[in-house]
């Protein structure tokens, strides 16, 4: 579980162009569930993700990962937590150009000092699982959108993180790929991963894999909706 206590994040603090992107947010995000953050553009979803994913430090407040206070760690150890705990899927996938799909997947594990052969085998197995065995050695910029998405997912999984964090993963995808993405998330959830997704995309929030929807506005949490509970309630109604 991830717990946020009165978390605030101010960009450009102390300067005239300061922006309060996340404002006094307290929130609990459950394990092994799919949580979606939604809200209008500029409401602070991405910023909140960077705080949860240890990419940035909150200006105020605390963030707990299980029983570990992760918001006050020095950068070196924040990175350690990030590497071990979170896998990221970025909006534009952010694969490194000029590197092959395989190398892109291996990248997050370099600092762990795992032996090259073992790491390569693991990355190849992951890519194979995503049906990319034939495209493994292709340069990442030559991959199609769907392939790039799956490489990005494979990269997020290479360090076997408990949490998957995805920022607008479907913003530039067509319906078929969105469906495919939802299926991947379903499989990951089934494998016991905890997932956080930000999205504008109704196709995501309406997906039945989603357990909880958090709505943000102007840096605040507007509502927290437990959709699996809702569905269960609906199901019960139907059964009755």
């Amino acid at each position: 579980m991830i717990r946020l206590e009165h978390v605030t994040r101010i960009h450009n603090e102390g300067r005239p162009n300061a922006v309060v992107a996340v404002n006094d947010v307290s929130l609990e995000i459950p394990k092994e569930r799919v949580t979606v953050l939604r809200g209008p553009s500029g409401s602070g979803k991405t910023t909140l993700l960077t705080l949860i994913g240890c990419l940035a430090r909150p200006t105020q407040g605390r963030i707990w990962l299980d029983d570990e206070l992760i918001s006050a760690l020095p950068e070196r150890f924040m990175t350690e937590v990030r590497r071990r705990t979170f896998g990221f899927i970025f909006q534009r996938f952010n694969l490194i150009r000029g590197l092959s799909a395989l190398e892109n997947v291996m990248l997050p594990a370099y600092p762990t000092g795992e032996s090259h052969a073992a790491l390569k085998a693991r990355a190849a197995a992951l890519l194979e699982r995503f049906g990319l065995k034939a495209r493994m050695h292709e340069k990442s910029e030559l991959l199609s959108g769907g392939e790039a998405q799956r490489v990005a997912i494979a990269r997020a999984l290479i360090n076997d993180p408990a949490w998957i964090i995805a920022d607008e993963p479907t913003a530039s995808l067509d319906t078929a790929l969105v469906d495919q993405f939802i299926e991947e998330m379903r499989a990951l959830k089934k494998a016991g991963k905890s997932i956080i997704i930000t999205s504008h995309d109704p196709r995501i929030w309406q997906a039945d894999v989603v357990d909880r929807i958090v709505t943000m506005q102007d840096g605040h949490i507007l509502s927290v909706e437990d959709v699996s509970a809702r569905e269960r309630a609906e199901e019960k109604e139907q059964n009755a």
Partner: peptide, 14 residues
């Protein structure tokens, strides 16, 4: 001051 998250501390750390 390692417990502080102040801008100064972060600058020092970097």
């Amino acid at each position: 001051d390692i417990r502080s998250g102040s801008a100064l501390q972060i600058r020092l750390e970097r």
